[in-house]
């Protein structure tokens, strides 16, 4: 990877305040190194994707930022505060919302309980239940159902609604469109744009590059645990074929 600073990596015009700053993040599973000096930045109200093939280190990056993978080196900052040594619980309470790839819905909790289980960490930013049900009417209809009785798309909506209810300012979303019907993927895209409008930032891991190009402002391309390229959405769309070939996707 060429030596570039974060500001050099960012396309022109992106000068907002960074919410999340990751610097020189390396991660290991035992002896095997999964990430090599990954640096990235997400600004207020930005949707940024991590794109790459299986095993490129996308989910490991997300899990490391969330504090679920602890065998790391480097530096992670939220709103300028160093959170590298904080536990996952304290990171969540600082405003990081987690939407795991398996949706993370509790089978033993109802939809309503799944929504109200996490604590509200920012009263001003937290979406009220009314607002959530307005945007996700199906969750209101099924509020007393066990969480895992929902369809895949409904579970994804519940998984995304949960951190909004907490008042998270930075959402980490792992494979939002995976395994969903095209019509549901379109809905998820609308929801991400709605989240962005409310000023919440999103770091999205995505294999579906077409979907990524419809929701994101910027993209980081990962290959073999390294950021190989950082580009704005316009450039991403114009070079889509070349990038897909380059990434072997």
């Amino acid at each position: 990877m060429p030596e570039t600073t974060l500001s050099e990596q960012l396309p022109a015009g992106q000068t907002g305040t960074p919410v999340l700053e990751v610097s020189d993040l390396s991660a290991w599973y035992g002896e095997a190194q999964a990430l090599r000096n990954v640096s990235l930045e997400v600004r207020v109200g930005e949707v940024v994707t991590l794109v790459g093939r299986n095993g490129a280190g996308k989910s490991t990056t997300l899990r490391s930022v969330m504090g679920l993978h602890r065998h790391i080196s480097g530096n992670i900052r939220l709103d300028g505060q160093d959170i590298t040594s904080r536990t996952a619980e304290r990171r969540a309470r600082a405003g990081i919302g987690w939407v795991p790839d398996d949706r993370g819905i509790y089978a033993s909790l109802t939809v309503m309980e799944n929504l109200t289980l996490p604590p509200v960490v920012d009263r001003d930013a937290a979406w009220s239940l009314e607002r959530i049900f307005e945007h996700f009417p199906v969750l209101h209809t099924r509020r007393n159902f066990p969480g895992t009785k929902l369809s895949g798309g409904e579970q994804q909506m519940l998984a995304m609604a949960r951190p909004l209810r907490m008042g998270a300012k930075m959402l980490l979303v792992d494979e939002a469109s995976e395994g969903l019907a095209p019509v549901i993927v379109t809905q998820i895209g609308d929801i991400i744009r709605e989240i962005k409008k409310s000023g919440v930032s999103v770091l999205l891991v995505e294999q579906n590059v077409n979907f990524a190009s419809t929701v994101a402002d910027r993209h980081y391309l990962l290959a073999e645990g390294e950021v190989v390229e950082s580009l704005g959405n316009d450039e991403f769309q114009s070079r889509l074929e070349e990038l897909l070939h380059h990434l072997g996707m």
């Binding site: 969330m66 504090g67 679920l68 536990t87 996952a88 619980e89 990171r91 969540a92 309470r93 987690w98 795991p100 993370g104 509790y106 089978a107 033993s108 909790l109 289980l117 996490p118 604590p119 960490v121 949960r162 951190p163 907490m166």
Partner: peptide, 13 residues
């Protein structure tokens, strides 16, 4: 009981 790590990641104490 169902998922302790996930609960922590959701800020549950």
């Amino acid at each position: 009981t169902e998922e302790p790590d996930r609960s922590r990641a959701l800020g549950v104490n």
